[in-house]
Amino acid sequence: MDRNFQRALALVLKHEGGWSDHPADPGGATMKGVTLANFRRYVKPGATKDDLRRITDAQLATVYRRFYWDAVHGAELPDGVDYAVFDFAVNSGPGRAAKYLQGVVGVVQDGRIGPATIAATKAMMRATAINDLCDKRMKFLRGLKTWATFGKGWTARVSGVRVDALKMVAVISTPKPSIPKASEPEKPDLITTPAEPAKGLAFFLQLIGKALAALFSRRKEH
């Protein structure tokens, strides 16, 4: 369930910043990407803007999980795609993010991610799904009336999402260093050479000859 949630949330928060209450933002007052309406819905009914400003990390995670991550079935999507869809949902709503993913993978665009969408997403190359989704997301954002105000920030955000999502896809396999086996002592080559004559052989033969000569000499004397 939490396979990539914490990692994806940390990446989302890099783009969300802190407190915002821009009059041109249709979401109204937000803190770290959490709107006052969602804070009231999932954390504290009747919360004020000051309550939202003091949102805790645990409350923040609760809103992001329930309203965005679970809504797009992030835990069931492939690595990288889960983050790209999640960030799209945070920025533009879970229903729109779901529809655009469905358009990328070629299933009915009903805005509800189910078994068919998940299966089609897993069957597609993850890098292709991420790039196509980010391209379609940028096209959607450029068509908004608030593009002139927020376009620069949106462009930087989607560019960052694309890079980080593709990093989650990439599997860098570093070959394990080979550990040399303990070297065995070299064995000398067995070289067969002709046997050398025994040392002192001539002297030994001389002794035998002298002994035989002495023996014969004694027999003659007798």
Rank of each mutant, 00 (worst) to 15 (best):
R157Y: 13
S178Q: 11
A120W: 04
D164W: 09
M168N: 10
P194S: 05
E186L: 15
K145I: 01
T121I: 00
P175I: 06
V108D: 02
C134Y: 02
L166T: 11
K122R: 15
E184D: 12
V158H: 11
K181N: 07
E184T: 14
A195D: 09
K122L: 06
V105W: 00
V158K: 09
T128A: 12
P94E: 01
P194Y: 01
A148D: 13
V171E: 14
T174S: 08
A170P: 00
L141H: 03
T121M: 02
E184H: 05
K199Q: 13
G95E: 08
V161F: 05
Y100V: 08
D164G: 04
I118W: 10
T193H: 06
M138F: 14
G95W: 00
I172L: 12
R96D: 00
D164S: 10
P185E: 11
K176R: 12
P180M: 05
A98D: 01
G103T: 02
M168A: 15
T121P: 02
D132F: 01
M125F: 03
D132I: 02
Q109H: 00
G106L: 04
T174L: 14
R126L: 01
A119Q: 14
F140A: 10
T174D: 06
V171L: 12
A202W: 04
D135Y: 06
L101I: 10
S159H: 10
A127M: 00
R112G: 03
A98Q: 00
F140N: 02
N131T: 12
V171H: 09
L101E: 10
E196I: 13
I179T: 13
A120M: 04
V171M: 06
Q109F: 02
E184F: 07
S178F: 10
G106W: 00
C134P: 07
T128V: 15
V161C: 06
F150I: 13
I118D: 04
K187G: 00
R96E: 01
T149D: 15
L190C: 04
L141Y: 09
P185T: 08
K136A: 08
A182V: 13
K122C: 05
A123D: 10
A198G: 04
L190N: 05
L201C: 08
P177C: 04
P180Y: 13
P94H: 01
A116K: 08
L141S: 03
K199P: 15
I118F: 13
T121Y: 00
G160P: 13
V169L: 08
R142H: 14
T192P: 00
Y100H: 05
A170N: 06
G95V: 08
V105G: 12
A165R: 01
T174Q: 11
P175T: 07
G111H: 04
C134G: 03
G95Q: 07
Q109E: 14
V104H: 01
A127I: 03
T192Q: 07
K145V: 05
G200F: 07
D164Y: 07
Q102S: 06
P194W: 04
R142T: 07
R137Y: 04
I113E: 05
R162L: 15
E186I: 15
K176M: 09
S159M: 09
P194I: 09
T155Q: 14
V108L: 11
G106M: 03
T155S: 13
K181I: 12
A129H: 03
K176Y: 04
V104S: 08
D135M: 09
I191W: 12
R96V: 07
D132G: 02
V107L: 08
V163M: 10
V171P: 03
A119H: 03
G106H: 00
L144M: 12
